[in-house]
C-alpha cells in the first residue's frame, strides 16, 4: 500500500516536472485539473461581494432611517411653532389685543441640537433647517393666516415710510379697494425670512392695518411674529 502511494506521488511529480519543462504545460494542467477550485473561488468571491453590497444597503437604510427620525423631529418643531402662529390668527384667539409668547424650551429634542438648527419665519412659511454632518435636513410648514415677521413698531415704521400713514385706528392708510398697494408691499417685504433665536422667546400678536378710501374704514388683519 505504502509503496503504491509512493509510486503515484513519484509519477505525479514526474508529470509535473515534464509539463513545466514543456512550457505550455501550466495551461494544460489547469485544463485537465478537475478539482473545481476556480469555480469555488469565483462563487465565494461572488458571495462575499453580495454580502458586502447587502450589508452596505442595510447600513444605508439604517442611516437614512435616523435621518427620517431627525426630519420628524424638525417637523414637530415647525408644526408646533406654525400652529401657535395660526392659533393667534384665528378669531377666538385670546390674544386679540395681547401678546402671546412661545418658547422653544417647551419641546426638548433628543436628536436635534438647537444650536445647529435654523428656524425662520417668513410671510408664508415656517422653515426649520438642521445642519447634520454637512448635509441639511429641513422641514417647512405653511401658515394659514397672513403673517409678517415684524414687530408692531417695525410695521408702523414701514407703513409710514412707504404709504405715508402708519395704519393704526387713528391714522388709516389711504387706499382704494382691493388695497393691492398695501397688501402687495407687505407681502413682498415679508418674503424675507426672519431667523429666530431659539434661546429667546418668540412674541406673536395680531395687528390690524386700517385702510380708508375716504368714505369708509376697513381693517386688514395680520399676525406679527417677532422677538
Amino acid at each position: 500500500m505504502k509503496k503504491r502511494i509512493k509510486v503515484e506521488i513519484a509519477s505525479f511529480s514526474r508529470e509535473n516536472a515534464v509539463s513545466q519543462k514543456n512550457g505550455s504545460g501550466t495551461f494544460r494542467y489547469l485544463l485537465n485539473n478537475t478539482d473545481a477550485w476556480v469555480d469555488l473561488i469565483l462563487s465565494k468571491t461572488a458571495l462575499i461581494l453580495a454580502t458586502v453590497i447587502i450589508l452596505a444597503a442595510v447600513y444605508g437604510l439604517a442611516g437614512s432611517s435616523s435621518d427620517l427620525v431627525k426630519k420628524d423631529e424638525l417637523e414637530v418643531i415647525a408644526i408646533d411653532l406654525a400652529s401657535n402662529i395660526d392659533a393667534a390668527g384665528s378669531i377666538h384667539s385670546i390674544t386679540r389685543d395681547g401678546v402671546k409668547t412661545y418658547s422653544f424650551d417647551a419641546y426638548s429634542g433628543q436628536l436635534i441640537d438647537y444650536d445647529k438648527m435654523d428656524i425662520s419665519v417668513s410671510g408664508e412659511y415656517v422653515v426649520c433647517t438642521f445642519a447634520d454632518n454637512g448635509h441639511n435636513i429641513s422641514a417647512a410648514r405653511q401658515l394659514s393666516y397672513k403673517t409678517l415677521p415684524f414687530s408692531p413698531i417695525q410695521l408702523r415704521i414701514l407703513l409710514n415710510g412707504q404709504l405715508g400713514a402708519n395704519g393704526d385706528r387713528s391714522h388709516p392708510v389711504n387706499s382704494v379697494f382691493p388695497y393691492t398697494d398695501i397688501t402687495e408691499y407687505l407681502a413682498i417685504t415679508a418674503t424675507e425670512e426672519f431667523y429666530l433665536n431659539t434661546s429667546k422667546e418668540v412674541r406673536i400678536e395680531r395687528a390690524s392695518v386700517f385702510v380708508t378710501d375716504g368714505s369708509e374704514v376697513n381693517e386688514l388683519e395680520y399676525v406679527l411674529v417677532y422677538q
Binding site: G89, Q142, S144, Y145, K146, A187, E221
Partner: peptide
C-alpha cells in the same frame, strides 16, 4: 366682491 375680499383677506394667499 368687497365683502368676500374682506372675508378672505385674513387668510394666507397660498
Amino acid at each position: 366682491d368687497k365683502e368676500r375680499y374682506m372675508f378672505f383677506q385674513r387668510f394666507s394667499p397660498n
